[in-house]
Write a protein that binds this DNA or RNA. Structure first.
Lengths: 341, 341
DNA sequence: GTGAAAGCGCTAACAC
DNA sequence: GTGTTAGCGCTTTCAC
């Protein structure tokens, strides 16, 4: 399979000029005769010349046009939409994306990072896994001076750019919406502890209750994973005691849907008797019946902007870390529309 | 940013041996003194040595440990699950995946392939886009002798390995299930023409009708895209004329869900009055009410097996193209359970 | 404006 | 079993 690709040497030989001129012409460096340049480009086109990115990356630590994306999952609406956004920008700028999935496991995440061939990647887009010790990143990646942008699940106290949705205000607005629709006993089924996203949404929830002078009940705040099953379990726990909530604000739509399934199973009328609101705007939320009120996250834009920011960092050697916070949008649906009281 | 990574030269110098010995020790070639080998490995570990994959790929056309994955979308259940399967195998074998998304547009697909730096990828996993001319692939990729495995959306008459679900039998079984539950006027909302997946599911549908001596009505077979909106449109078209079907077999779950939304909107009782069945087993199908009967596709396994096959091809120079067809599993839910007649 | 040549980090003959 | 050396394809001084 020792197939020979066209190289700049081939072009140089055919045109009877030197490889360096070909190289310069190909990359559009200015001090090249317009005429030779065009000849080179034409021949390259004709012969289907493709630069060898290994050689390019190797020579003088040049750009490899590859960026690494490290995230916990891909098989869910939010993550795959973020990647679509990343991909859109990367494609338009001629970058390839190299995908690493951690399965939300800290060890796997670390092993991936440890075994990374940094030299072949120009930068990283990272969404950290749940139990991660983010300071490992400083050690492992950032000491190499490779640009990193964190998105969605960002670590605290990290001198790197971050792109995220407005978790705090999103939660605040959603809970306030529940309150304004007459629900008072609002529980929160939260994400895993230690994730800033979990913390911020919890804070938003607490702030909304406080603002409306609704007492906070610790036992109505349950931390667990992000899955639908976790949502189901949390909800069963909430419904077990004598005193029950009359609404649930879930950290994401999958958990909200889990909650709804349990509520429906118990014959509780969602909307009328019990309010439910989620976070994400997963297409499922518009399919389930009753439809689910949710704080829509700008997933595509998170991906797009993260990638743009990273590319900016890659372009200029000494960049300033930047934080970008994108607003969400409350989508009001049936699950929170209490019948006139 | 001119950061210096540890190289084999550094290791060689520190150990006072030659680079070739280091190189051999690192890759576990056998004719190396056990003792020196261990010393090298220990030092490499200590100094956090990482092989430079550019150099590796460049030198003697060695393996780059990168595989390219080209597919139409990622933001849906099926595709993202396939990628998860691919990723699982790639990770365990030390391969990276480089992702290319065509947005199901033939021009973009072609442009991606045209601009690929083949030299940095050891092989390709491809699911073709809708309007594609698959013979372009022969020309563009396969002439280079790079291993390719097609999955899910595979082109016909291509001398390459293919991994797919059993579309024909899956459709056949699903339609037969509808028939056995008393539905007789079964329409098919199909995928875009020209895709083997579309053709096979259509053939399965036709075969089931034929077997049960149910006349085929051309006007009850509608081709369009794969989206939920397409499902809605197709269904409106089907319900417009005087004579209407009493069941719909959809090429995928998103279209089936689109159909259900229209049916529900018209007050038609799904299950009792009208049967619906899909294909995929998207989690949505278990969420929608009534729940959707569907032919579950082995998405994760499609990814896993495709990747294993590709890696096998990469390992042995002269491989035989292989076809793998994975069975689906009918998941019977409420949308096809006709009340006792 | 262009060419010659060095070298990026690694592998694979080829010697010994 | 180990060292020497010649590239892989490209970029980039440094001459001219």
């Amino acid at each position: 399979m020792a197939h020979h690709f066209v190289t700049i040497k081939d072009l140089a030989k055919a045109l009877n000029i030197s490889v360096s001129t070909v190289s310069r012409a190909l990359r559009g460096t200015y001090d090249v005769n317009e005429e030779t340049k065009e000849k080179v480009l034409a021949l390259a086109e004709e012969l289907h010349y493709r630069p060898n990115s290994n050689a390019r990356g190797l020579a003088a630590r040049g750009s490899t046009r590859n960026i690494g994306v490290i995230l916990p999952f891909i098989a869910n609406y939010y993550c795959s939409t973020v990647i679509t956004g990343i991909q859109e920008v990367a494609y338009s700028k001629g970058y390839n994306i190299v995908l690493f999935v951690t399965n939300d496991a800290a060890e796997r995440e670390l092993s991936i990072i440890r075994n990374l061939s940094m030299s072949s990647l120009d930068g990283f887009l990272i969404s950290v896994s749940s139990g991660t010790d983010p300071h490992r990143y400083t050690e492992e990646i950032m000491t190499h001076g490779i640009p990193v942008v964190f998105f969605d699940r960002v670590p605290d106290h990290m001198p790197a750019s971050k792109v995220m949705q407005d978790d705090y205000n999103g939660a605040f607005e959603t809970v306030e919406h529940l309150i304004s629709n007459g629900y008072r006993q609002i529980a929160h089924i939260a994400g895993p502890r230690g994730l800033s996203l979990t913390e911020q949404r919890l804070k938003g929830y607490l702030a909304a209750l406080t603002k409306h002078r609704i007492p906070i009940k610790e036992e109505w705040i349950i931390h667990s994973g992000f899955s639908q099953e976790c949502g189901e379990e949390d909800t069963r726990l909430l419904l077990a005691p004598e005193e029950q909530p009359d609404a649930i604000f879930a950290v994401n739509d999958r958990k909200a849907i889990g909650a709804m399934l349990v509520l429906k199973d118990k014959g509780i009328r969602i909307g009328q008797d019990f309010g439910v609101a989620g976070f994400t705007n997963d297409p499922m939320s518009a399919i389930i019946s009753p439809t689910l009120t949710t704080m829509a996250e700008p997933a595509f834009d998170i991906g797009k902007i993260s990638c743009e920011l990273l590319l900016k960092h890659i372009a200029k050697k000494h960049f300033q870390a930047e934080d970008v916070i994108l607003p969400g949008k409350l989508i009001i649906r049936e699950s929170s529309r209490r019948r006139k009281l």
